[in-house]
Amino acid sequence: MQFDISSLETGTLVFIGTLVFAFILAAFVLAAGLIALVLAGAGKLTWMVVANTLLAVVHGINSAWDRLVHHASTVDVSGDFQPQPAPSTGTYPRVILRDS
């Protein structure tokens, strides 16, 4: 049995066409929304990876600097420099400046 579309009324054809157009439009909006969510998620993931990497690098630099300063403050450098007479008077030893 063959379906004859010419037997349908104009109002029915308009209604079916409107439903088909609405379905196509809804599918397009849903696909665009899904793509937007995927792109937003990928952007957020990329931002979090970059931000956490930068924070880890800064934390590592701060930690290494703190260890270096702590190690430098515990080193005794008094044995490295022997007192020498000053060139002008010949009586005062050279002063080693250290931070406290």
Rank of each mutant, 00 (worst) to 15 (best):
M1P: 02
Q2D: 01
Q2L: 02
F3Y: 04
D4R: 06
D4P: 01
S6Y: 08
S6I: 00
S7T: 15
L8Y: 14
E9K: 07
E9N: 09
T10I: 06
T10K: 04
G11N: 11
G11P: 02
G11C: 00
G11D: 10
T12A: 11
T12R: 12
L13W: 06
L13Q: 10
I16G: 01
I16N: 04
G17S: 13
G17W: 04
T18V: 06
L19S: 04
L19D: 03
V20Y: 10
F21T: 10
F21Y: 09
A22Q: 12
I24F: 05
L25I: 06
L25V: 12
A27Y: 07
A27S: 07
F28A: 09
V29I: 12
A32T: 05
G33I: 07
L34A: 05
L34S: 05
I35H: 08
I35D: 09
L37H: 08
V38T: 03
V38G: 02
A40I: 03
A40N: 13
A40G: 08
G41M: 02
A42N: 01
G43H: 01
G43Q: 07
K44V: 06
K44R: 11
L45D: 08
W47M: 01
W47I: 00
W47A: 14
W47K: 10
V49P: 04
V49C: 01
V50D: 10
V50G: 00
V50W: 10
A51W: 05
A51D: 08
N52F: 10
T53P: 01
T53F: 05
L54G: 03
L54I: 03
L54M: 09
L55I: 01
L55Y: 06
A56W: 03
V57S: 09
V57T: 08
V58C: 01
H59Q: 08
G60L: 05
G60H: 01
N62T: 11
S63Y: 06
S63H: 06
W65V: 08
W65F: 09
W65S: 05
D66M: 00
R67P: 00
V69H: 04
H70T: 15
H70N: 12
H71P: 00
T74M: 04
T74D: 04
V75W: 08
V75L: 12
D76Q: 10
D76T: 11
V77I: 15
V77E: 11
V77T: 11
S78W: 11
S78F: 11
G79A: 07
G79Q: 11
D80R: 14
D80Y: 12
D80N: 14
F81Q: 10
F81Y: 12
Q82K: 12
P83H: 04
Q84M: 13
Q84F: 10
P85V: 09
P85Y: 08
P87N: 14
P87K: 14
P87D: 14
P87A: 15
S88H: 07
T89F: 10
R94D: 10
V95C: 00
V95M: 15
V95D: 14
V95S: 13
I96E: 03
L97T: 13
L97K: 12
R98S: 14
R98K: 15
D99K: 13
